[in-house]
Each structure stands twice: as C-alpha cells, then as structure tokens.
Simulated scan of single mutants.
Amino acid sequence: MGKVNVDHSKYRDIRFDIQDESAIMTDILETIPYEYPGKDVEVEIPTSEFTSVCPWSGLPDFAEITITFVPDRYLIEMKSLKYYLTSYRNVGIYQEHATRRILEEVVAVIQPKWMKVEALWNPRGGLGTRVTAEYNDQD
C-alpha cells in the first residue's frame, strides 16, 4: 500500500471570526447578600455548558467548569453568572487563561473566604486538559 499525498493547503487560511476578551461581560456579575456571616458553607456551582474558542484557530473549546467557594458576605447571583460565562462563547482565549480569569473576576465581585475554579476541557486531538485555579483570602 503506497503513501497517499493529500493537499491540505486549502485549510491554511481558514479562520473563524473570534471576539477579543473585551467581549467578556464582567460588569454583568451581581451579588446577593449571604445572610449567615460567620457560619461557613461550601457552595459548588457546576456547569457543563462552557465554551470559548481557540485564539489561534477559532475552533470551539468546551469545558465542564465547577466553581466552589466559601462565602464571606456575598453570594454570586446565578443569572448574572450564567450571562457572564456565556459571554466567553466566541472569545479567543487559551484554556488556562480562561480558567484563571473566571477565578479572578468572580473573586473580585463576591470577595469569598476561599474559591476554586476547576475546568475540565474536552479532548482535542486526543489531549484533554484539567485546569485548577484557587484563591484563599489568607494568602
């Protein structure tokens, strides 16, 4: 069986339109008061619907994201979080940077005692990625 030569040059200039990070709607994040200050609870918010795009190719990246935190005075308002996460949909951003950015922006809004954002990115080309970013107000 001989080697087959395939001309892949037709793919060279293909790029899908992507948005830059200014499309991320950080200002939409809202809080609600945590009514039990001093009484710790752990809140876990999972979603399997997160998507952004590769900044190089514009191809979609899908992730299961879990945001876990111990509130101090505020909780995140869920509708605002949903809109915020959805605003990443067409943004070209590396997986590691998206995970870290989500942590930093949600921390800035709710000021928790502790937070972890874990993203399990779907495999592409046989390689998946798990990215974990963590914040502790004692650091």
Rank of each mutant, 00 (worst) to 15 (best):
M1K: 07
M1P: 07
G2R: 13
K3A: 12
K3E: 14
N5Y: 13
V6M: 08
H8Q: 03
H8E: 07
K10F: 12
Y11D: 07
F16H: 12
Q19F: 02
D20W: 10
E21D: 12
S22R: 13
S22N: 13
A23F: 14
A23W: 05
I24K: 05
I24D: 04
M25F: 05
T26S: 12
D27W: 06
D27L: 12
D27M: 09
E30V: 02
T31I: 11
Y34D: 03
E35G: 15
E35M: 12
Y36W: 06
Y36M: 14
P37G: 04
K39W: 01
D40V: 02
D40E: 15
E42D: 09
E44D: 06
E49G: 03
E49M: 10
F50L: 12
F50C: 08
T51F: 01
S52E: 05
S52F: 04
V53I: 08
P55D: 06
P55A: 07
L59K: 05
L59E: 11
D61H: 05
E64Q: 11
I65K: 06
I65W: 02
I67G: 01
V70N: 03
D72Y: 02
D72G: 02
R73I: 04
Y74A: 05
Y74Q: 08
L75P: 02
I76H: 03
E77C: 03
E77N: 01
L81K: 04
Y84R: 10
L85H: 07
T86A: 14
S87N: 08
S87V: 12
Y88N: 08
R89C: 07
R89I: 11
N90C: 05
N90P: 03
V91P: 09
V91H: 08
V91D: 10
V91W: 09
G92T: 12
G92N: 14
I93S: 06
Q95S: 15
Q95T: 10
E96H: 06
A98L: 15
A98C: 15
T99D: 06
I102H: 11
I102N: 02
L103H: 04
L103R: 11
E105P: 04
V106D: 03
V106G: 00
V106P: 01
V107W: 00
A108R: 14
Q111Y: 01
Q111V: 04
K113L: 15
K113D: 01
W114Q: 14
M115I: 10
M115Y: 07
M115F: 05
M115P: 07
K116D: 02
V117F: 00
V117N: 00
E118H: 07
L120I: 15
R124P: 11
G125Y: 05
G125E: 06
G126P: 09
G126A: 09
G126I: 11
G126K: 10
G128L: 09
T129G: 00
V131N: 00
Y135R: 03
Y135L: 06
N136K: 15
D137P: 01
D137R: 14
Q138Y: 13
D139I: 11
